[in-house]
C-alpha cells in the first residue's frame, strides 16, 4: 500500500519533469538509501559513454534520470564510464562487473554499448539491461530506449525558418555519425516545410572515431562563426558540450542558436540565455527514470521503447519566450507529425 502511494508520487514527479525541464538535480548519487523519501532493494548500474557524468550533455541527462530515481525510490546505484580508446572488451567487462556485483537493472548509455549488451545480456538472463539509442542488441532482458530525434528536430527546424530573416540557417553536428545525421535530416525537413527556398549550412565538427566533436566548445564556436559570417542567423547544434561555443558565437554575431537534449536555456551561463531560441528536448533522463520505475513496478520494459513526440520524449522548449509568437504553428506541426500527416525523414 505504502509502496504504491510512493510510486504514484513518483509518477507525478515524472510528469512534472516532462512538463518542465531542469536537468540540474542537486542530489548526487550518494543519497542514503536508508532515509526518506523511500528505500528500495533495487541496485541500478549505469555505464556511461566517454565523458561520463559531468559532460554537460548526453551522459549528464542519463545521470539526471538516475538522480531522480534515487531521490524518488531510494535505489542504490553505481556508475562507471568509458574511457577514450578503450577496446570493445572493456565495455563488456564493465557490464559484466555491474551484473556480477548484483546490479539490476544495468543501463548502457549510448549506442556504443550495443555490441557489449548483445554479448553480455545472454550471460545474465536474470539481469535486465537498458540500452539507450540503439536497437542493435535485442533480447528478452534488453530494453532498447530510443528517440525519434528527427521529429523533435523537425519542430526546431520549423522554428528556425520562421525566425530567420536572412533565409539562411545553420546546423552543427558534433560527430558525423548516423545518429546526428538524424537530427540534421529532421531539422532540414522542418525548415523546408516552412520555407521551401531556405538555405541550410551544415557542418560536422569531427569524423569518427574522433568523438571530440561532442566536447569541444572551441570547435563549436569556430564552426558557428563561419556559418554566421556566411549569412546564417539561426544555428542549431547537435554537438553536446561543444554547443557552448555555438551559443558564444551567436552572442557575438547577434544571431540566435538552438540547443539540444536538455532545455539549454537553463544550463548556459545567464548572459547567453538571450541567444537561445529554443532547444530540441531529448528526454534521456525521462527514459532512464521510466525504465528504472518500470523495473521497480515489477514489469521491466523490454524490446524497443520509443520515447516519441506524443509522450514528450522529444519536444521543443519554450523557456525564454522567443518562440511564444510561433508556438501555434509549431504545435500544429507537432499535431500533424503525431497524426501521421507529416512523415519526417530520418537520414539525409
Amino acid at each position: 500500500m505504502r509502496r504504491s502511494a510512493k510510486i504514484m508520487i513518483a509518477g507525478m514527479a515524472a510528469s512534472l519533469v516532462l512538463a518542465g525541464c531542469g536537468t540540474d538535480d542537486p542530489d548526487g548519487p550518494d543519497t542514503d538509501p536508508g532515509t526518506d523519501p523511500g528505500t528500495s532493494e533495487v541496485k541500478v548500474g549505469l555505464a556511461y559513454d566517454v565523458g561520463g557524468r559531468g559532460d554537460q550533455s548526453f551522459n549528464d541527462a542519463a545521470a539526471a534520470g538516475l538522480d531522480r530515481a534515487i531521490a524518488d525510490f531510494g535505489v542504490d546505484s553505481t556508475e562507471s564510464s568509458a574511457i577514450d580508446g578503450e577496446p570493445e572488451s572493456a565495455r563488456e567487462e564493465r557490464l559484466i562487473q555491474l551484473a556480477d556485483a548484483g546490479f539490476n537493472p544495468v543501463i548502457g548509455v549510448g549506442f556504443a554499448y550495443a555490441g557489449a549488451v548483445a554479448k553480455v545480456a545472454p550471460q545474465f538472463p536474470d539481469t535486465q539491461f537498458g540500452l539507450i539509442d540503439s536497437t542493435d542488441a535485442m533480447g528478452d532482458n534488453i530494453a532498447n530506449l530510443v528517440f525519434p530525434e528527427h521529429e523533435g528536430s523537425f519542430l526546431v527546424g520549423a522554428a528556425a525558418a520562421l525566425k530567420s530573416e536572412t533565409g539562411k540557417i545553420g546546423f552543427i553536428g558534433g560527430v558525423n555519425v548516423p545518429l546526428i545525421a538524424k537530427f540534421e535530416a529532421g531539422y532540414a525537413a522542418g525548415a523546408l516545410a516552412v520555407n521551401p527556398d531556405i538555405e541550410i549550412e551544415s557542418t560536422y565538427l569531427t569524423q569518427p572515431p574522433d568523438f571530440s566533436g561532442f566536447g569541444d566548445p572551441a570547435k563549436g564556436r569556430t564552426a558557428a562563426e563561419g556559418q554566421f559570417d556566411a549569412g546564417a542567423d539561426v544555428v542549431y547544434h547537435a554537438a553536446g558540450g561543444s554547443g557552448l561555443g555555438v551559443f558564444q558565437a551567436a552572442d557575438t554575431a547577434g544571431g540566435l542558436a538552438i540547443g539540444v537534449d536538455s532545455d539549454q536555456y537553463h544550463t548556459v551561463p545567464s548572459e547567453l540565455q538571450d541567444v537561445i531560441l529554443t532547444s530540441m528536448l531529448k528526454q534521456v533522463d525521462v527514459a532512464v527514470y521510466d525504465y528504472i520505475k518500470s523495473f521497480i513496478d515489477g514489469s521491466p520494459l523490454s524490446g524497443e521503447v520509443v520515447f516519441g513526440l506524443e509522450a514528450g520524449g522529444v519536444d521543443y522548449s519554450t523557456s525564454g519566450g522567443l518562440v511564444d509568437d510561433i508556438a501555434d504553428q509549431l504545435d500544429e506541426f507537432k499535431r500533424q507529425i503525431i497524426a501521421g500527416e507529416i512523415t519526417v525523414p530520418d537520414s539525409m
Binding site: F111, A112, A114, G115, D133, S134, D136, V177, P178
Partner: peptide
C-alpha cells in the same frame, strides 16, 4: 559510402 544502413553504429 559502403556502410550497412539502419543502425546508429555503421
Amino acid at each position: 559510402s559502403v556502410a550497412v544502413p539502419g543502425s546508429n553504429n555503421i
